[in-house]
């Protein structure tokens, strides 16, 4: 059986050699194994880490298998109990007792960050902790400003920059402004590509919002528009945008990693 996490760790290392300086990942058993491999390879300390929580699609699959949200909640509670993470367990109990969304969120984040930390050693740096797009965009649609604020406060207390992955960049920025959420204190990961793929409501609206934000705190994702664009085409567009702090690119082959990050390095000099 092939060692998938080993192969993925090699890809990260190859990307690093060619100019990448960060690793964005959904927190799962697989990505935690990749982090352990990177730690053993001695390269993890050169990487900024950008975990995304929760790994929504995996949880949806698990919910399907476990018979819905109650089944998933039981499975998750069992995992927290087995992990021996007393802080997460206590927060979780408090959250369940009062059915308090904020306490439940904190319990979940405490559990996830402890899993990441136990896989990366002492010197690796978590730069930003991102809330997954599905959770961000549900909370945004439901106007849960207090949830965003609690998330930010909690993540900042952990010493990380709060991040939000969204498919509704313009809407998010507009709402955050109306809720007096300080855009200087966070990072946003959102789709940006020259064909406007997943840039909602439109490419024009997202570009206009990007110009308006106070500082470069956006990480562009989906820059290749799910393989529709080649790296050179993609970078040409991204390089001309203001306020983009970084670019996240998914790679599946070492040659792809080398070529992509070489072109990125040549074209996105900061």
């Amino acid at each position: 059986m092939p060692n998938h996490s080993g192969h993925a760790a090699d890809l990260v290392a190859a990307s690093l050699e060619n100019g990448a300086n960060g690793f964005m990942f959904s927190v799962s058993a697989t990505t935690l194994s990749i982090l352990e491999e990177l730690d053993q390879m001695g390269v993890i300390n050169n990487l900024g880490l950008y975990p995304i929580v929760p790994y929504a699609y995996e949880y949806i699959r698990l919910a399907n298998q476990a018979g819905g949200i109650p089944g998933l909640a039981k499975r998750f509670a069992k995992e927290v109990a087995i992990s021996g993470n007393l802080r997460a367990f206590a927060m979780g109990l408090r959250g369940i007792a009062g059915m308090d969304p904020t306490s439940l969120m904190k319990a979940y984040l405490t559990f996830e960050i402890s899993r990441v930390k136990s896989s990366i050693g002492k010197h690796a740096e978590v730069k930003s902790m991102f809330l997954h797009e599905v959770v961000t965009d549900i909370a945004l649609a439901l106007n849960l400003d207090w949830l965003f604020k609690s998330y930010m406060d909690f993540v900042m207390k952990l010493g990380f920059t709060p991040g939000f992955n969204t498919g509704n960049f313009s809407h998010l920025v507009e709402k955050f402004r109306s809720w007096n959420i300080d855009l200087h204190r966070l990072t946003i990961a959102a789709p940006f590509n020259k064909v406007g793929f997943q840039m909602n409501p439109s490419r024009g609206a997202c570009e206009k919002t990007l110009e308006s934000i106070p500082e470069p705190n956006v990480i562009a994702i989906s820059v290749l528009a799910a393989g529709y664009l080649n790296v050179r085409e993609a970078i040409e567009y991204i390089a001309a945008l203001p306020n983009v702090r970084g670019v996240a690119i998914g790679v599946s082959k070492e040659s792809h990693a080398r070529e992509s990050f070489r072109i990125l390095r040549e074209n996105l000099k900061t």
């Binding site: 599905v134 965009d137 509704n168 793929f197 997943q198 909602n200 409501p201 439109s202 528009a225 799910a226």
Partner: peptide
């Protein structure tokens, strides 16, 4: 034709357009 070619944007994105 890919999704990209077929005006796939929506006013609010959640899960899928």
């Amino acid at each position: 034709w890919y999704r990209h070619d077929l005006k796939d944007n929506v006013p609010y994105w959640l899960g899928l357009p």
